[in-house]
Design a protein around this nucleic acid. Sequence first.
DNA 1: CTGAAAGCGCTAACAT
DNA 2: ATGTTAGCGCTTTCAG
Lengths: 367, 367
Amino acid sequence: MRGGRVAGTADTGMTGAVGSSDLVGVVMLRRRPGSPTLEEVAALAGVGRGTVSRVINNAAGVKDTTRRAVQRAIAELGYVPNLAARTLAGRRADAVALVMTEPDWRQFGEPFFSEIVRSVGDALTETEVQLLLTLVRTDAERQRLVEYARGGRVDGVMLMSVHATDPLPDMLADVGLPTVLLGRRSGDESVTYVDADNVGGARAAVSHLLGTGRRAIATITGPPDMYVAQCRLRGYREAMERAGVEARESWTVQGDFSADSGHRAMAELIERAPEIDGVFAASDTMAVGALGALRAAGRRVPDDVAVIGFDDFPLAQHTDPQLTTVRQPLEEIGHTMVRLLLEEMEEPSAAWRHVIHRTELVLRGSA
Amino acid sequence: MRGGRVAGTADTGMTGAVGSSDLVGVVMLRRRPGSPTLEEVAALAGVGRGTVSRVINNAAGVKDTTRRAVQRAIAELGYVPNLAARTLAGRRADAVALVMTEPDWRQFGEPFFSEIVRSVGDALTETEVQLLLTLVRTDAERQRLVEYARGGRVDGVMLMSVHATDPLPDMLADVGLPTVLLGRRSGDESVTYVDADNVGGARAAVSHLLGTGRRAIATITGPPDMYVAQCRLRGYREAMERAGVEARESWTVQGDFSADSGHRAMAELIERAPEIDGVFAASDTMAVGALGALRAAGRRVPDDVAVIGFDDFPLAQHTDPQLTTVRQPLEEIGHTMVRLLLEEMEEPSAAWRHVIHRTELVLRGSA
DNA sequence: CTGAAAGCGCTAACAT
DNA sequence: ATGTTAGCGCTTTCAG
């Protein structure tokens, strides 16, 4: 029976399955047709529509007694403004979208994303702006989002995890929709973006290793076609160069950001470059894999070999609390995205703006 | 230095920090004022507005040549319909919301949620309906969502992880907005919901243990104020009763769905009821904790004690591939939510509908 | 300070 | 088959 399956309620027959015996519950009356309108409020309050509009928009210049009367009418009718009408009449949608373009759905659960979502939500919680998360996986969904955004349902768009070849940012930005990217697609990203200082962070990590007297420092890179990986490799090289240490060819091994690839890369390094006494991994996940390989090979960490990983996901605390990492300030990155977006919505500028957040080294046992 | 922090780019000074030296990039012209309107399209195509409307809505009864002409005009102008106007003119918003009311933000990253989000997204991907995820943590956000929904920005709302005391479902449903809940708040939930068969699943798990000849079966429960936990406890009791096995008081220990609480509960069980030869945990997470406690105590699993957990999050595969679980069909649950919502949007009914999905036992090594 | 009136861009019902 | 017209509910001048 191992690995087999048994219907959970086969012996009970008590519950309805889809489409078969749905239980139908209490019957209740509902009223849909005709939420009260501003006009009805005006009538009840005995004022003109303009006055009601002023009241619900907190506009100045309404006698206090009238205001009160209107508010009473609003409460009595349970009036809620029709947002479509409001938007159509010229005001904004009072909503922004945070888009995840991640075909690989597992990413969704990553701490990286939840952190960003959380901080963006926080930054918006004080405002009148509703945050809308949307998923874009297929081209159909891409198209639908563009029509949604261009259709005026949101006043601005933030995009996370955009792949280098994704045209979505341009489709949005080219129509004049305030758009902010999290991370660059390439070195000359034009659309407004917020990014972490990947070059500087990598440089700081490697400099730190050099500072402890180590010289034979290797790096495990990310996919070469990802800009973020390029930056981290560049940081490694710059640090080595500045220190006057020649970075041997054999000290650079390619990974793909996964723990597995980190493990393999480290195993290869141990094999072909046993002189290594330090490693900079382009992701914390790979760093964890590398630590595993080192320990498996009987190397002492950090005494024999020190490891630092770039903190893409605040993973380290869950897997290896001893791992030194380069931390990206996700909280601030989220806040900055919101700030840039709101500013752009406030007064559209003709220029793209780019903000790069500093990173910081979080020292722990392994380096 | 251990545990200390170092600014990543302190030695570089190359990057701009927020608000200090933001890089300002390429300047580009943007046009915002006045997207082309349907009227302009009509003019360019030399037809009436009604015809254009028919074309963009794929309505029948338009001569093929005219249709083509209109489409050409649309392409030439880069016309995109104004959604606010469309909604106002009486049609729907063509959007639905999937709401997470989870004050404890960590939950967001759980596989349970990403699975639901994924399956709901899948179910919607074929339609014209845009999925909007929204977060509701504070009362302010709750209020904002209600105004958003009542304001006509979405045609329906799905709610996940609703706490027993949350008034949000009623606030929405009472105004006649199609609303579907994932999970019940209590035994007499009125609002339309989709749920897993928690009672039946628990019963099946315990029956399975009984079927292997075990008699001293304990249960680790969830928080007693959560309906889902009550149901799973009820299933345990029913199975024991049906088998004519007396479930001793001391065999029921309370947990809180966390792995830690599972560990503690199991340790307590080992102490006070060493006769135990089977355990049903109300969540897979607690089951994992329980397994840890058992192994630590030197009990062999499943030979001495068999463990089954209820699969809230498809966690088992990540932590203990040997753990037998009661699986909830998350994919189907998501699809059903969408189906019910769309049906309700199609033709509002006066009745609430309730669907309870079967669960299935996924047998693995530990039971 | 407040009422009246002119749209916002679209759909749908009604003519033609 | 297609043009015309009347709103949808709100914001916003513009008069009073």
